[in-house]
Design a protein around this nucleic acid. Structure first.
Length: 626
RNA sequence: GGGCCUGUAGCUCAGCUUGGAUAGAGUGCUGGACUUCUAAUCCAGUGGUCAAGGGAUCGAAGCCCUUCGGGCCCGCCA
């Protein structure tokens, strides 16, 4: 059981009491008490009934409390009316403690049946395959990966897609660089290919467009050939794209993200899905041929409060959005699937990664969803709103296509300075084109190096391999947590120095709590006896921890319903805080008696199991030592 | 000009969806706790006209309106 049962029981109990007292039936709130001295659970019904009953909130609550006391039920030990008007409850810990601890031992603890196994498709990452990932991309990946993990825990049948824009302008840029700009397609020394393409070729060729108009024209030709996909140049482009993609995926995997399918834009273009979608839009009256004005001769989408969006140019060619619409429709299973699926790789977790192909000899599969989430930063909101509107028309359901937007990651003035950029004290937007970014690999390497030294200092007896493993876990924990801990619509100002500080509200703080718990259990050397009495668990520190452990599924529900990964991040942090307070104030291995020690060991075990499960939702490893 | 987001402690942020108890964390600063289950920890102190004004309400950081500050987006580019 979890705290959910306590809330449910109280909700029902209050309702029954109101019925007995002849109070009107209304919606009221049962929630966690804001302070420990108020008890465990609070109810606001006193305020809500005060008006209709023409009584003071306190009087209402008192009358309810009196009646409630006649039958406290299983999970409540005390009920009282507070002077403020709140109705407060104290939980029955002699029941709560063992039940929460036993529940937390179950492998699926925290799972809820919100999705009822319905199909949910989530797309994230989708970085142009012409450069290495920077910290801005990392936010996208971590949000997408974390939300996918949470939805899976909430019983959705989740498919994860990574869209590969292999026929866009950015890829064309580096192809121009290789074919006409004189850049070798073999990177110098041991530089990763994605870094080479992004740091050197892409940035340099972009600079040269300024002065060399001929190069700009070549780019248009390259772009056209990439879309057609038949020429040698297109084949070369495909080869380059796949080499970059392979390197990008290494970084994604290092971050702990995994996918089900890679969707190649070039194949969407060649599959003629667009034509099907376009006809559908015409027949549904979603798009119309503009007769006059500046867009005369274009097929446009009329927007209510904004400018019309051109869909097909007056020369008959489709605009950028014409690639996104059929893809979105495909994701929702609205259009007939033109793709077959080919094995790409087996990922660390054993999950198979597939890729789209137009080759009919390959397998037919399904990665489409009843609902679709697309993780893209909120600068794309206008475009995504148009797509959302079209999809709701197509599907005739309003919220089947969800744009999960988030604010961008900018660089702090100090970090910008390390790139020789004086921003005058302001933070600056990252730009791959201008070479203004901090790469994900670099941040992870620096973090990993620092944590390696720290781990070595603390654990001098550990071998190199173990230390490397720990430092990598901690580095990724730090970065993932930093990307997820605040709200999606807050800008993250990335500061390299600050990102290396691993104290307080950080991933490593939480991981450290887990490592501490592990050491206690390890030193004890045996399994705690879960059959014995847990009555000895009775300090405030222990009760507080039990309460938080018992809230796990409620937090998963909240996070899944609101697509809010930060809820799980906060949960992990609070869990860790409660354990660290316990650790400082309550001794386990030197407890006064065997019984007390055993009870506390059970709690420590329950804690580390729950924390590990919660951290797993964040894609953060729970280290045994650090 | 239009659209979206945002403003809470020196700094970074919770809380706002669903109004209610003394507005919470981290960090910073000051001081304290390692012969003890790992100090990546803990404890105490410091620090807030919740951007401003108005409205509805018994009651507003939260709801409504106005104003101001900051960010992003608005191409027959992708």
């Amino acid at each position: 059981m979890t705290l959910r049962l306590v809330y449910d029981e109280i909700r029902l109990g209050v309702k029954q009491v109101c019925h007995v007292l002849g109070y009107p039936e209304i919606e009221f709130d049962v929630s966690e008490a804001s302070r420990p001295e108020f008890g465990d659970v609070s109810c606001n019904i006193g305020f809500l009934l005060a008006k209709t009953l023409k009584k003071k909130p306190l009087d209402v609550s008192q009358s309810i409390a009196e009646e409630y006391k006649k039958n406290l039920g299983e999970y409540v030990s005390e009920v009282s009316a507070h002077a403020s008007g709140y109705l407060n409850f104290v939980a029955n810990y002699s029941l709560l403690v063992p039940q929460v601890i036993y529940s937390s031992l179950q492998a699926n603890y925290g799972s809820i049946d919100l999705g009822k196994n319905s199909k949910m498709t989530i797309e994230h990452t989708s970085v142009n395959p012409n450069k290495a990932l920077h910290v801005g991309h990392v936010r996208n990946i971590i949000i997408g990966d974390t939300v996918a993990r949470i939805l899976h825990k909430a019983s959705y049948d989740v498919s994860v897609l990574n869209y590969v824009d292999d026929s866009g302008l950015q890829v064309a840029d580096i192809i121009v660089g290789f074919k006409y700009g004189g850049y070798s397609d073999t990177p110098p020394d041991d530089q990763k290919f994605d870094h080479y393409c992004g740091d050197i070729v892409y940035v340099k060729i972009t600079e040269r467009y300024e002065t060399d108009k001929a190069l700009t024209e070549l780019r248009s030709h390259v772009l056209q050939e990439l879309e057609e996909g038949t020429s040698d140049l297109a084949k070369f482009g495909d080869e380059i794209t796949r080499r970059v993609l392979e390197e990008q995926l290494k970084t994604c995997w290092r971050l702990g993200a995994t996918y089900d399918c890679l969707n190649f834009e070039s194949q969407i273009v060649r599959s003629k899905l667009w034509q099907v979608a376009f006809e559908k839009m015409k027949s549904m009256g979603i798009t119309e041929l503009e007769q006059e004005g500046k867009n005369a001769g274009c097929w446009v989408i009329k927007a209510e409060s904004e400018e019309d969006k051109v869909l097909v140019r007056s020369n008959g060619t489709a605009t950028y959005i014409a690639k996104d619409i059929p893809y979105a429709a495909w994701k929702l299973g609205i259009l007939e699937d033109p793709f077959y699926y080919k094995h790409y790789a087996v990922q660390k977790t054993g999950r198979v990664l597939w890729q789209t192909t137009l080759d009919s000899k390959e397998t037919a599969m399904h990665f489409t969803g009843d609902r679709v989430i697309t993780v893209i930063d909120s600068r794309q909101s206008r475009l995504q709103n148009i797509i959302t509107k079209i999809m709701s028309d197509f599907k005739s359901k309003p919220d089947s296509y969800i744009h999960l937007g988030y604010e961008s990651v900018t660089l702090s003035p100090d970090t910008a300075k390390t790139l020789d950029l004086d921003t005058g004290g302001k933070s600056v937007q990252m730009s791959g084109r201008k070479g203004i970014y901090v790469s994900a690999d670099y941040v992870l390497d620096v973090l990993s190096e620092q944590t390696f030294d720290e781990a070595k200092k603390r654990n001098p007896e550990l071998d190199e391999m173990s230390l490397v493993k720990i430092s990598e876990q901690v580095a990724i924990g730090a970065l993932r947590y930093a990307m997820i801990r605040q709200d999606l619509d807050k800008i993250i100002t990335f500061d390299l120095t600050e990102s290396l500080s691993l104290e307080g509200d950080t991933g490593p703080y939480i991981q450290y709590a887990h490592a501490r718990a592990m050491r206690i259990l390890e030193k004890y050397g045996k399994s705690p006896n879960f059959g014995a009495s847990l009555d000895a668990v009775n300090t405030v520190y222990e009760k507080d921890m039990v309460k938080i452990i018992g809230k796990f599924d409620l937090q998963v529900e909240d996070a899944a319903k609101n697509l809010s990964p930060k809820i799980i991040a906060k949960y992990c942090y609070h869990l860790a805080v409660s354990f660290n307070a316990f650790y400082e104030h309550v001794k386990v291995l030197t407890a006064d008696s065997e019984d007390i020690m055993n009870a506390r060991l059970c709690l420590v075990y329950s804690f580390k199991e729950t924390l590990a499960k919660a951290l797993q939702l964040l894609g953060i490893d729970a280290p045994e030592r650090m």
